[in-house]
Nucleic acid binder design. Structure first.
Lengths: 324, 324
DNA sequence: TTGTATGCGTTATCAT
DNA sequence: ATGATAACGCATACAA
């Protein structure tokens, strides 16, 4: 490995001059500097990140922690983060799983964006207490080193539930999210409120998990226990896809006919379902960008700020007016 | 930040003893050791990655470089990599974009897995020459520090093309991949060979890009220039989805009726298309696992090895026997 | 304008 | 069994 020491030797100068030259410090003579740069180039010099980090205590790297690489959910979100961070000279890396948590306290990251319900809040608070900068997208957490950028789940879930009710359904199913999911809880709360406000309704909750399998199970339960027209709100699109899958060859229910379905997230896959899935949309790209922005703000010494990402209703043929 | 120096002071021992204790070196007295561990714990000690890396010249981190976070293609692949790496104590981080390339030469990674046609081969060779360990999934590259784990594109493309021909189509379209994609070129070569072998055929190539937009354009061209029954081989599933989208409301063509379509990759989204998309399947999880395995082998000082991932044909209703 | 010297936190060699 | 010390590569305060 070629280090500044090697360059110094070759150039006949001291390592500090080399360091200055490489970092574009103006106090080093222009020709000395260009000579050094040339030599560095010739020798294929690349600075050592570990050494630089040890000295400067910053890596210019930000980590995004997500639950899993699977699912078509994260793409745009991460792209939104990356674009914003790159513009400011930071790199983004994506991490998943408990084992990778170490990167944060060990100082490999200047900050982190969290979208992983399995990442314990206590653990996050410990890191924040150590001075690490965080942005959470999936929980409420108050700390001077933690900013929140949350979806407007309440508005979205209310819009979705009202859409079903306005379409004339009095029998309404909700397929819930997994235990411990902040988004799922928020959405469910808003749904319950909307249901209360619109009594009388025959309202049933089915336990889901935000995966397709949850939708499949929900479909089975609905087919087994009921046969009239009904509205189903899957608290995310992924489960709606599972529901579609299971109902594809059903004789009792046809989506968009006697079963109206709406999801949440408006993921790309859902747009190609037949009939198209009604859903709650929001800009994932913007979500990522805002999260990055807030993280950069914290890193720059700014105050923790709580931002909200607004949503809107996408009507589609998966929801049809109930005939009475 | 609490360092081993602080622990040493508190424990009344030297830093070397602390270091030994923390690393479980048996030559340090058992009670001294446990006392040190306890103090370290109390003080919330976490080792500094930069310092450790500077000294040991390894990070226990492997990077996967991909073209973009978008698309539902990568999930299982990355999961396969991660599971294998974690088992051996390594962490996986996902990187995208030119800017993040620096992590490799700067020594933040013990090795990298490349699936990004935009990552220049010359650049990869430079890194390999510096001693960095690489596994490439998207090109042929011979170097003692580079292993290849490639899909069996030839077999897959041949299977797909033959499936269309055997189904009775004499008019065959191929929607190609982007310039510079190794997979696309390999697949196209195999298709051409199969076409030659099955003369006479009316065979037409349409330039694609591996994105949905390429499929959309292909659909338009086909509708504009032809109306008889035809077989279409999209060199990946993503483009087939675009084709489905564009043909959804077409009066001239109905997929699985007078237009038979087959893709490549058998991505999850494609399984929920109506009619289900015929495709070429392979285990993305296994691909990732094998790639990781080969990287670990290189890191451990093993020889570069070239592996191949086998594929098979998934028949589905998007391909229907042509009536003559 | 350039050089000398110190320290970042760790590992590891060599004494003791 | 434990301690003193050098070294990893770099940035920087200070001296010249």
């Amino acid at each position: 490995m070629v280090s500044i020491k090697d360059i110094a030797k070759r150039a006949g100068v001291s390592i500090s001059t080399v360091s200055y030259a490489l970092n574009g410090n103006p106090k080093v003579n222009a020709e000395t500097s260009s000579r050094i740069l040339e030599i560095a180039n010739e020798m294929n010099y690349v600075p050592n990140a570990a050494a630089r980090t040890l000295k400067k205590r910053q890596t210019m790297i930000v980590g995004a922690f997500i639950t899993s690489f699977e699912g078509s959910f994260y793409g745009e979100l991460l792209q939104g983060m990356k674009d914003m961070l790159n513009k400011q000279g930071y790199d983004l890396i994506i991490c998943s799983g408990t084992q990778s948590h170490r990167l944060l306290p060990e100082g490999m990251l200047d900050g982190a964006i969290i979208l992983d319900a399995k990442f314990d809040s206590d653990e996050l608070l410990r890191y924040a207490n150590r001075g690490h900068k965080l942005v959470v997208l999936d929980r409420e957490l108050n700390h001077k080193n933690i900013s929140q950028v949350l979806l407007d789940n309440k508005a979205g879930a209310t819009l979705a539930a009202e859409y079903l009710i306005e379409s004339g359904y009095r029998k309404i199913y909700v397929v819930t999210g997994p235990e411990g999911s902040f988004d799922a809880e928020q959405r469910l709360k808003a749904v319950r409120l909307t249901m209360e406000r619109n009594q009388p309704l025959d309202y049933i909750e089915i336990q889901g998990d935000f995966n397709q399998s949850g939708g499949v199970r929900a479909a089975r339960q609905i087919m087994a226990e009921y046969s009239g027209p009904a509205g189903v709100f899957c608290l995310n699109d992924e489960m709606a896809i599972g529901l579609y899958r299971e109902l594809k060859d059903s004789s009792s229910y046809t989506i968009g006919k006697n079963l109206s379905v709406i999801g949440f997230d408006n993921i790309e896959t859902a747009r190609y379902l037949q009939p198209q899935l009604a859903s709650i949309d929001y800009s994932k790209r913007r979500w990522g960008a805002v999260a990055s922005e807030q993280l950069l703000n914290l890193i720059a010494g700014g105050q923790a700020v709580h931002e909200r990402i607004y949503v809107n209703l996408i009507k589609a043929n998966s929801v049809r007016k109930a005939e009475d």
